[in-house]
Design a protein around this nucleic acid. Structure first.
Length: 265
DNA sequence: ATCTATTCCTGGCTGC
DNA sequence: TGCAGCCAGGAATAGA
């Protein structure tokens, strides 16, 4: 499922191969960019309405450069010499010509961390539900949400107000940057527009690893359902906050640095 | 304000 | 071998 790193990977490949090419009837491709998980292709040359192609990939939507239409091709953009196919097995994706983006929250990667922290302040919402809500902040899906929360040592059901937002945002940015550098995650079938798989799945610590040892402390990873999504976490490294009275889990980690409690400071 | 359930969709898996 | 039944989940929607 394409999340921010996968969409970023696709956008970069499309930009490298399609910028300045002409799409008959729509003009030349002027820029390709993304906001959260939404990919945008801007065309110029013809002053007309709806000159912007907005792509929401959904669960299985992908772009494919060159070749012939396949069984799941929903639309083909006949760029001169290099057709671009929009394939989507489950049909949750949307590809539409319009002027504006759908109303979604700020991009989680480019959002200043202070503003990210402000989004968490005073919210009773569980952090997992909040991060998945694209209206609040856009870009994270189920996989990176779980991975970021593990790296940050935060239980997915923690109320947002109890979290150090600046620290969580730093972890999110680090994680997404690493995933982008790895070309995204290929769980079952994601490949970039040239057919290349991602590699970040090799660094997943919790997603899809229920029952397997936490790479940090060897405690078995737990899977629950939160916000209607499969949610994976390490019960030792990600204790619920505030801790249940008497809960004695403690990550098997050295503490050479002062222990920062995740409270607002 | 925040939660849960339901709908969309289909390949891939399980079990008989 | 075949098939029923369930699973995965992004996003929209309805209802508690």
């Amino acid at each position: 499922m394409p999340e921010l790193p996968e969409v970023e990977t696709m956008v970069r490949v499309l930009a490298a191969h399609l910028l300045a090419r002409e799409l008959p009837g729509h003009g030349r491709l002027a820029s390709v960019w993304r906001h959260g998980k939404v990919a945008v292709l801007d065309f110029s040359g013809l002053a007309r309405a709806n000159s912007r192609l907005v792509a929401r990939l959904g669960m299985t939507g992908t772009f494919r450069l060159g070749g012939d239409p396949g069984p799941y091709t929903r639309q083909t953009l006949p760029f001169g010499g290099l057709p671009l196919h929009f394939d989507d097995i489950r049909r949750f994706g949307r590809l539409q010509w319009q002027d504006a983006l759908p109303p979604i929250g700020p991009d989680v990667f480019s959002l200043p961390r202070g503003e990210f922290a402000a989004l968490l302040a005073g919210r009773d919402r569980r952090i997992k539900a909040l991060l998945l809500d694209q209206m609040t902040v856009s870009g994270l899906g189920n996989i990176y949400c779980d991975e970021c929360l593990h790296r940050a040592g935060i239980h997915p059901l923690t109320p947002a107000s109890a979290i150090d937002g600046q620290r969580l945002h730093r972890v999110i940015r680090e994680t997404l940057a690493e995933a982008i550098a790895d070309g995204g995650s290929t769980i079952s079938d994601f490949v970039d527009p040239l057919g290349r798989a991602g590699r970040f799945q090799e660094r997943h610590r919790v997603y899809g690893r229920a029952g397997k040892p936490c790479p940090q402390c060897a405690t078995p990873i737990v899977r629950v359902v939160a916000a209607q999504r499969g949610t994976h976490y390490c019960p030792a490294c990600q204790p619920l906050w505030p801790p249940e009275n008497g809960g004695s889990h403690r990550p098997n980690r050295r503490r050479t640095e002062p222990r920062l409690l995740p409270s607002s400071g």
